[in-house]
Design a protein around this nucleic acid. Structure first.
Length: 256
DNA sequence: ATGGTGGTGCGACCA
């Protein structure tokens, strides 16, 4: 089973890329972030035509998340407490015996800002939510845009980013608290290569200069860890015309 | 080259 996550930065703007990528990468499950469209604006027919069931939490202009799956999605959930302040950032569902949680973490703007404090608070609530989810569903994947680069190896220039937002110690601690629940960064189970990123700023020729961060992650629970057989980041769509600023990431699990 | 972006939605905010 191939599971993927992609921050599309507007589903309306990126629908052609989504269709193209699904056709060639053929993920069984795909979590989308930053839909940037209202609940009733979701392109349900196009997603269905591409061969996917979907559940989603839409929001006009900002945020918004979806979970797409080749097979049926049961027990959908939208994060409860995490939807405070009406920001739609979490979508969960069960697919073929695996619980999948798609997340779009708060960006945080700048260390010390009001949005940064909200980010840390949001991660604390995500921690509580994932603890509950794990108790009910030991076979769990949490994937999406975490807006945190776990370690310096995930940063193009650690000096430049030192204690900056997306890389600061409190943010990394919040991410480590999630991992301490019994979750594992699937990419790092298999790769220790530096300079492999999932996001590059549109500004300052970020992609061309490979000035990026690895902030999009697929975390697998203890129960699923032995089943991880491959994981990666697909940079191709970032090269297409009018791309998202994020690349899709994926993890492949053995059946069983 | 001392500048270089993009989405939403029409000015300003967000990333």
């Amino acid at each position: 089973m191939k599971l993927a996550a992609w921050n599309v930065n507007s589903l309306k703007a990126r629908l052609p890329h989504l269709q193209q990528w699904c056709a060639q990468a053929a993920p069984d499950v795909l979590a989308l972030q930053e839909l940037k469209l209202a609940q009733d604006q979701f392109p349900e027919a196009a997603i269905e035509a591409a061969g996917y069931h979907a559940v989603w939490a839409g929001q006009k202009t900002y945020n918004g998340v979806a979970l797409l799956s080749r097979s049926a999605i049961s027990e959908p959930d939208f994060g409860g407490e995490l939807d405070a302040k009406e920001q739609r950032r979490v979508v969960s569902g069960t697919v073929a015996g695996i619980r999948v949680v798609g997340v779009y973490a708060v960006n945080g703007q700048a260390v010390g800002s009001e949005k940064y404090r909200f980010k840390l608070d949001w991660f604390a609530r995500l921690h509580a939510y994932l603890r509950e989810q794990l108790a009910s569903y030991p076979r769990l994947v949490v994937m999406g845009d975490f807006n945190v680069a776990p370690k310096d190896i995930d940063v193009h220039d650690p000096q430049l980013w030192h204690e900056q937002v997306l890389c600061s110690t409190p943010e990394r601690s919040a991410l480590n608290d999630l991992l301490a629940l019994g979750l594992h960064d699937s990419f790092r189970l298999l790769h220790d290569t530096p300079k492999l990123f999932s996001w590059w700023d549109y500004r300052e020729l970020g992609f061309r200069r490979n000035r990026g961060l690895r902030i999009d992650l697929a975390l697998v629970s203890d129960a699923l860890r032995p089943l991880v057989k491959a994981a990666g980041i697909d940079k191709e769509p970032r090269k297409w015309e009018r791309p998202s600023n994020h690349a899709p990431i994926w993890v492949e699990l053995q059946d069983g």
